[in-house]
């Protein structure tokens, strides 16, 4: 698995390529940690090239939910394929993590969240 991170204006994009399993989930976790340390508030996870996700991979997202709420960090996942989305859906995560199809949709969603506060 490979992770690339870059800024697009105020948005911080984390692009996940490949399979997110137990070992690679640590890399993603480090990437998120880095984003938080850089004081990034609007995180976009590009899942277009995420082929597979395992439970520890899911754990990376779930473990930070409360922390992000406190720090007012907003995140959106986008571009997921059906298989990966199904994993999120079965776990019920589609109800608590914003998951959309397109990057632009994601940006709009984040903007909305930002404005609400």
């Amino acid at each position: 698995m490979e992770i690339t991170t870059f800024n697009e204006g105020k948005y911080y994009i984390i692009k996940i390529n490949g399979e997110l399993d137990a070992s690679s989930s640590l890399i993603l976790d480090d990437a998120i940690e880095e984003a938080v340390n850089k004081d990034q508030k609007l995180l976009l996870f590009d899942c277009e090239n995420l082929h597979y996700i395992s439970s520890p991979g899911i754990g990376v997202f779930t473990s930070r939910i409360e922390d992000h709420e406190q720090k007012k960090i907003y995140l959106v996942l986008y571009g997921m394929n059906e298989k990966v989305f199904n994993v999120f859906k079965i776990l019920g995560l589609d109800k608590i993590l914003p998951i959309v199809n397109e990057k632009e949709e994601a940006k709009i969603l984040l903007n909305g969240a930002l404005n609400k506060n």
């Binding site: 939910i65 409360e66 019920g92 995560l93 608590i96």
Partner: peptide
């Protein structure tokens, strides 16, 4: 049926899911 995994949300709001 809907339902969220245990230990994902660790507060009262879990009941909503």
């Amino acid at each position: 049926t809907d339902g969220l995994g245990l230990g994902i949300i660790r507060n009262e709001s879990y009941k909503n899911y």
